[in-house]
Design a protein around this nucleic acid. Structure first.
Length: 832
RNA sequence: GCGGGCGUGGCGGAACUGGCAGACGCGCAGGACUUAGGAUCCUGUGGGGCAACCUGUAAGGGUUCAAAUCCCUUCGCCCGCACCA
């Protein structure tokens, strides 16, 4: 008997699929489409288990849905700009483009070795000019709409990557890529005005029914909407207006001091001439050197210094001291906060430390806080006191009333603020999309005209010699003509954040070779939105937020008809080994190559899907892999041992649906078959529980072996039923293990490819059992079981149950209080 | 501190709307076939007990005829946000 040889048959089928453009997706308005997408990889040159997991999940879905009759688009490409290529170039003297291209070739081969069903005709590589010219085009579209702008501001600088980072790319005060601590740096940089979309990005989260709650919450936190009031104070000494933002305007009468951020623009004016000017300047210098992370960490002591200036409270004309404090951030609100120690615990502690006065202005119900010194701030609701004309008003009402008062007196108003900042997209690196702007001494910054796109990244540059980005030093690149006046001008030398590329690649897949536009409306309207997106949770507020922003912008521009790019999102869990993340330093890395070599791709895919549900973390276990390998061999053997039933007459009788007069053993097998079809279908389609789908197929295979065992010594196996069962095993297994099933399908002599067959449909009639096992409980505890016709009425179940020998003693001499009957399932006697 | 999630055998995990806890796989034990097997096939496998039976889903309480599932309290773990004014 021929053994299962994955190493031989897998490459054979892979080649077959590729040569025939097997998974090509073509727009067909008559057919319902389904867009399955996994986050595209950075072409590092090494496929790891995390990749194998996402792509296996996506592939099962794509293959399953094709069999379900949908027009499935399942594309793949490369997020190919970025630092590693540049670093490799420096280290090994390679050209980043060539380095990337050779990595792409390696990884593409690895993906194909997994048997993934991609439409490679749609392959997209972001570092190719065909792609990045549209990055530039989109940038200009943002620019024309006032959504791309340049400003000087303190930005996050990663000293190791030698570039700035967006806020989203700073994790725990460190660079998301390398972990180095970022420090503030004052630079003029390009931003995208994502804050203009803050409200819609927040509101539309509620439309995303197919997204994990967790990701939505993370985005909500990140956007950080906060409703409050802007209040304008006046500086007593200079007459300057000083604006604060507060969520508690009702406590305005309780303000006893004000604190400014060290970066506050008014600060130097306020301290000029003060006796403590030098001390304050030193403090400001020191604070500016520290990162936001350091300044705002819970352990950092709150420091405040009196500036010598005072602010006048608009509502009562009171003069209060203005301090400067390390904990106030220029980047949120107005960079100035009012201090209300009586009603904010943080202010309370601060006031306590600096001997600032505390004034109660909100009394809780039935208690007077003004009677004795406070022990802590009262942050709850209550009635206003010490608040002039607002005394006696419930504080929730006063929030509105006081703000309205401020509006009437032109010194404030309602205001919604967000934590979200504009997206910093400049990078001081070479390997990225050049920002299509030239600086003209006459005209200032000028957009490169569309016809001159793409602005090509110069190639053949010796990166090893360059300090950081070689672009500013490349005269050929920098020198330009001003599109407006024709004079000599200089090109922008910063490149774009690579997250710009990945914010719209899923649109390009719909129409990857379009030369006149990033994509045509026709194709995008048919294929988009992505129906199922799959990827890591690490992009919860990076890529996923940026992409939503892009889509909304493109919607507003009339370029797409959708407002949300990803209908459903699956955040897959991580792959661990021995309880720890796979890493070189721990030496617990298992590579997909290794698994393919030893067991084959089908085994690897099966294990990775079987070991845990997709959203959960997975522990790689060699013995578990072995188990899946064993299962596939068991399937293989089942076919080898029964190949005779598919011979000669197979084609003539295989379609016969009628299988009259089955013996009980055959009936059990038939039921197992239809049950498995049902279970596998539901598990893939509705629940994404591939692990239980696979276990259902295993059970079916076990049932076939079981059938043979019961047959021992009996007349004949039921050939039509077996044929039907085996055929369906191949179909059910096809999305999970595409190679072995293609081979078996072929060997059995069936027409066409297993991957183009319609998905099997179960017959509910065959699921019905005549007799069901009924559980008999007494006081909720199982005491016995009995076999009865499924449709036995209540009364019959009860009498039959009472007649059971094991039940009798429990009912004797007892009072029956109640009986519960769940038809077809259980009987419960409640006795006393 | 706030928000999200989780806690089930020796292990990975099942148990859809409350209705037989532990499907399936791993591991382990026994048997069969075999010169042999780490191949394969069969059987058993939460714990305790010879058994009837008892007990068991992080801990404690509650609702219910019936709870892994619903409610309350506590503990533990993971993730996100965190002087955000």
């Amino acid at each position: 008997m021929e053994g299962y040889n994955a190493r031989e048959l897998e490459p054979k089928w892979q080649a077959h699929w590729q040569q025939n453009n097997y998974y090509r997706a073509v727009r067909n308005p008559a057919q319902k489409k389904y867009y399955v997408l996994e986050m595209f990889p950075y072409p590092s040159g090494k496929l790891h288990m995390g990749h194998m997991r996402v792509y296996s999940i996506g592939d099962v879905l794509a293959r399953f849905l094709r069999m379900r009759g949908l027009n499935v688009i399942h594309p793949m490409g490369w997020d190919a700009f970025g630092l590693p290529a540049e670093n490799a170039a420096k280290k090994h003297g390679a050209d980043p483009g060539e380095w990337t291209a050779s990595n792409v070739a390696v990884m593409k081969a690895q993906l194909n070795a997994l048997g993934l069903s991609y439409d490679w005709a749609r392959e997209v590589t972001t570092c190719s000019p065909d792609y990045y010219r549209w990055n530039q085009w989109l940038f200009l579209l943002f620019y024309k709409n006032g959504l791309a702008y340049k400003k000087k501001s303190p930005v996050n600088w990663c000293p190791s990557c030698q570039t700035v980072l967006a806020n989203e790319q700073v994790v725990d005060g460190g660079c998301w890529r390398c972990g180095s601590e970022v420090s503030p740096k004052e630079l003029e940089q390009w931003f995208l005005k994502i804050t203009a979309y803050a409200e819609r990005l927040l509101q539309d989260l509620s439309q995303l029914k197919g997204w994990p709650e967790k990701v939505k919450v993370m985005q909500e936190n990140w956007i950080g909407r906060s409703q409050g009031t802007d209040i304008v104070f006046t500086v007593a000494e200079t007459g300057d207006r000083l604006k604060v933002f507060t969520t508690r305007p009702d406590t305005l009468f309780g303000v006893t001091y004000m604190v400014l951020a060290p970066e506050h623009p008014l600060l130097s004016k306020l301290i000029a001439g003060s006796s403590r000017e030098k001390e304050i300047r030193d403090f400001v210098q020191q604070s500016r050197r520290e990162s936001e992370m350091e300044r705002t960490s819970a352990e950092t002591e709150k420091i405040g210094l009196f500036t010598g200036a005072h602010a006048v409270n608009p509502i009562n004309g009171e003069k209060i001291p203005i301090l400067v404090g390390n904990y106030v951030l220029m980047s949120y609100g107005t960079g100035a906060v009012m201090g209300v120690p009586a009603h904010d615990q943080r202010d309370f502690l601060f006031a306590d430390a600096y001997g600032l006065p505390v004034r109660v202005v909100v009394n809780p119900p039935a208690k007077d806080l003004t009677a004795a010194p406070l022990e802590e701030a009262y942050e709850g609701t209550g009635t206003l006191v010490n608040s002039g004309e607002f005394n006696g008003m419930p504080n929730t009402e006063a929030q509105k009333a006081i703000t309205e008062w401020l509006i009437r007196h032109d010194c404030g108003g309602f205001r919604v603020r967000y934590r979200l900042r504009d997206w910093l997209i400049s990078r001081q690196r070479y390997w990225g999309t050049p920002i299509p702007i030239v600086y003209c001494p006459q005209c200032g910054p000028v957009a490169v005209p569309e016809k001159d796109l793409p602005v090509l990244l110069p190639t053949g540059i010796d990166l090893a010699a360059a300090k950081q980005s070689p672009l500013p030093e490349s005269e050929d690149f920098v020198q330009a003509r001003c599109p407006q006046c024709g004079g000599t001008a200089r090109r922008e030398t910063d490149t774009m954040d690579t997250f710009f590329c990945s914010s719209w690649y899923y649109l390009r897949y719909a129409d990857p070779h379009h030369e006149k536009a990033p994509f045509s409306k026709e194709e995008v309207d048919y294929w988009l939105p992505v129906d199922q997106y799959i990827g890591g949770i690490e992009h919860a507020v990076l890529h996923l937020l940026y992409s939503r922003f892009f889509t909304k912008f493109l919607f507003d521009q009339g370029l797409v008809a959708i407002e949300e790019p990803f209908q459903r999102l699956l955040a897959q869990g991580m792959v661990y080994k021995d309880g720890a993340k796979m890493s070189k330093s721990l030496g617990n890395v298992v590579s997909p190559d290794e698994i393919i070599e030893r067991y084959g791709a089908d085994t690897g895919r099966l294990f990775i899907l079987f070991a845990a549900p997709p959203e959960r973390d997975l522990d790689w276990n060699e013995q578990g892999v072995e188990g899946c390998y064993r299962f596939l061999r068991r399937v293989w053997r089942l076919f080898q041992q029964n190949m005779d039933i598919f011979a000669s007459e197979a084609k003539t009788t295989a379609t016969s649906q009628e299988t009259p007069a089955l013996c009980p053993e055959a009936e059990t097998l038939q039921r197992a078959l239809h049950f498995a079809i049902k279970k596998v279908t539901v598990d893939i389609e509705e629940r994404f529980n591939f692990n239980t789908a696979i276990s259902a197929i295993m059970e079916l295979v076990n049932a076939v072996y079981g059938y043979f065992n019961t047959l021992d010594g009996k007349p004949e196996r039921n050939v039509p039923l077996l044929r039907q069962t085996l055929k369906n095993i191949v179909l059910l297994l096809a999305p999970f293990a595409p190679h072995i099933t293609a081979e078996l399908w072929h060997r059995c002599g069936f027409e066409g490819s297993v991957h183009r067959q319609p998905w099997p449909v179960y017959n509910p009639q065959y699921l019905q059992v005549e007799e069901a096992e009924i559980v008999i409980q007494v006081n909720g505890r199982v005491r016995d079981r009995m076999l009865l016709p499924v449709d036995s009425p209540r009364e019959e179940l009860l009498t039959a149950a009472r007649r059971q020998e094991k039940i009798k003693p429990y009912l004797q001499d007892k009072e029956e209080i109640k009986t519960i009957v769940v038809p077809g399932k259980l009987v419960n006697f409640v006795v006393r």
